[in-house]
Computed example of a mutant assay.
Amino acid sequence: MSISNAALLAGIERGLVTADQAQGLRDLERTRTAVLDVEPQDDEKFRFISGFSDIFVTIGLGLFIGALGYFSAEFIGGVGMCIVIAVASWLLAEYFTRKRRMALPSIVLLLAFAAAVFGAVALALDPRLGISSALAEDSGWPIVVAGLVTAGATALHYWRFRVPITVAAGVAALVAAAVGLVFTAAPDLITQVAKPLLLICGLAVFALAMRFDLSDPQRQTRRTDIAFWLHMLAAPLIVHPLVSGLIGEGGPEAVAAWSILAIFIGLALVAVLVDRRAILVSGLSYAGFAFGSLVVKAGLSDSVVPLTMLVLGALVLLLSAGWHSLRRALLSRLPDALAGRLPAHT
């Protein structure tokens, strides 16, 4: 914490420091501030962990909730297990989230709570869901109801604890409800409409994330953390239908590989414009699966796959090195009204 000029003047009056010493302290503060100003700063701040105590507590939570779930399932079944986990996660959040404000434990507890609520409702309505992950012809409604109830529960959780990832968890529950609703309405067409539906949901989530981003261009409030998690959710919802469609068409591996690369170049441009590396990180995880499938199909005999991976890796490194320069160049080509609404850090 820096010493204010008023404190220095008071120190001179009381004889604690001389005028020369006070001026020397002012010069030192200006020099230190100038050095700090030229240090690189992370434009995409992410409140994930505040110290090793977060990791330590998270390990304890994992052990405790895991054991609690095991014994609950043994004695009161799957629905009872989910209810116990949901209640325990809420009560633990009262201390570790509301009182201690620990970032990583809060994220884990929220995810455990949301998953437990979803599982409790879905299993209560259709116990078969605990046996097989495949949807039966009449099992769409339990997913719809579970998604809606989970969305409501996460809204209540956010009102109480204000954990930024809660909004993304609630939106994910709504996406699950939408998928269940379409499956219930047209079970015979689910294979044809699943990918377009996920893509539409992904674009909707991205639009919601941008709404939060545009409302806080300086990224100084909780809205920027909410936007971060929404971008993390939107990216796989957008990328997965596109990439899985290319792999599943059975066409030449070379065409699929270069098409995937083109998708990620477009994704990278969007990420740079909105200044969200999270879009690339979430999408690249799906690219790894896509490239793995291509390698298996190619039998390692085609050089296109490793070449594409090489280009993709080079793209990520180049983006990391020239992120700000590229962003300034792209923003300069946008209309002033649009560029002025995007995050200002360049």
Rank of each mutant, 00 (worst) to 15 (best):
V179N: 06
G202P: 05
L294Y: 00
L331N: 04
E44L: 05
V296F: 00
T191W: 01
T33W: 04
F56M: 11
L199W: 09
L338D: 14
F118D: 02
Q220W: 15
L198E: 10
G147R: 01
T154N: 06
Q218P: 15
A278I: 15
V295W: 11
S133V: 03
L261D: 07
D225M: 02
L104W: 00
L123W: 08
L233C: 13
G15F: 05
A34V: 11
R223N: 07
I85S: 03
S301T: 05
S139D: 10
P196F: 15
V79H: 12
L319F: 09
V316F: 06
F161N: 12
A321G: 13
L342M: 14
Q41K: 13
A134C: 01
P306Y: 00
W258K: 12
V149P: 12
L267S: 12
I263A: 08
F118T: 02
I190V: 15
L16Q: 15
L91D: 05
T97S: 06
A153I: 05
A257Y: 10
P142I: 09
T184Q: 11
V17L: 07
L273N: 12
F118R: 02
G11M: 15
L61T: 06
D37R: 03
G24T: 06
P105E: 07
A86F: 00
A10T: 14
L237A: 05
D43A: 00
W159K: 08
A290E: 07
L326Q: 14
L280P: 00
L319C: 15
